[in-house]
Write a protein that binds this DNA or RNA. Sequence first.
DNA 1: TTGAAAATCAGTAATCATTACTGTTTTCTG
DNA 2: CAGAAAACAGTAATGATTACTGATTTTCAA
Lengths: 128, 128
Amino acid sequence: MGHNYSSKREAIFKTIASTKSHPSAAWVYEQLKEEIPNLSLGTVYRNIALFKEQGRIITVANVDGEERIDADTSDHAHFVCEKCHRVFDLHSSEQSPLEKELSRNGFIINRKNVVFHGECRDCCESIN
Amino acid sequence: MGHNYSSKREAIFKTIASTKSHPSAAWVYEQLKEEIPNLSLGTVYRNIALFKEQGRIITVANVDGEERIDADTSDHAHFVCEKCHRVFDLHSSEQSPLEKELSRNGFIINRKNVVFHGECRDCCESIN
DNA sequence: TTGAAAATCAGTAATCATTACTGTTTTCTG
DNA sequence: CAGAAAACAGTAATGATTACTGATTTTCAA
């Protein structure tokens, strides 16, 4: 089902994949509006939903009511700054004992989501 | 600011604190509607926001667009079943090396949110 | 106790991210 | 190319959450 190609779909994925900003749908739309003036926000949402189904992107966190996504689907955690609202990557090597216990108890883990909230270094250092 | 008492506020907190279901605002409202027929959903939302400010409850996850809360503010993780939408508590003793690294790098952690998504044992066992 | 002042509330309207709908345009396949 | 399928733009609808306004509770000093 689905021919699975369209120029807009490709542009949307490229935009998501080429940033480490963990963007929202609105951000992706804003980025592409210049390049593709007749792009529709609905198309961005529709394709984001498709990419998630396909496992090409993941949902990272919900920041101020907006869903933030990531084309880096490798197992890693995130830090959300409550001041500047940026999202940072946290790559770790450790394996959680919780996961083993869940598996032992008959739970199937499809994905895990580890998010720290606080203030990033930049915001800690600024006087505001 | 705020005398910080009202019978409805108390009832709302009791309802949240007396369940392990990690409820949504709508669920709390539904529970109390019998007991307090003239309760307003806005009041539930307003008080949830207040409890969060006061640190008496935390946000656990966003399940199908609804924010789910928890009066257990102790450090623990959660498992969200993608089939039955129940939220399970996962208490662990381990300390994450990520936290230490964040502190070392000048980040302030206000809270952490660890959520596993998948299928719970009950849903795995059912034939559906 | 009482009776304003302050806080909270009910009810409703507004907001805002996301989703659905409809007629048009793009893409695919032969 | 031509027809069918998929994707799209533009707009309307949805649904959770928030804001507003006039009424009701709560507080607390007299």
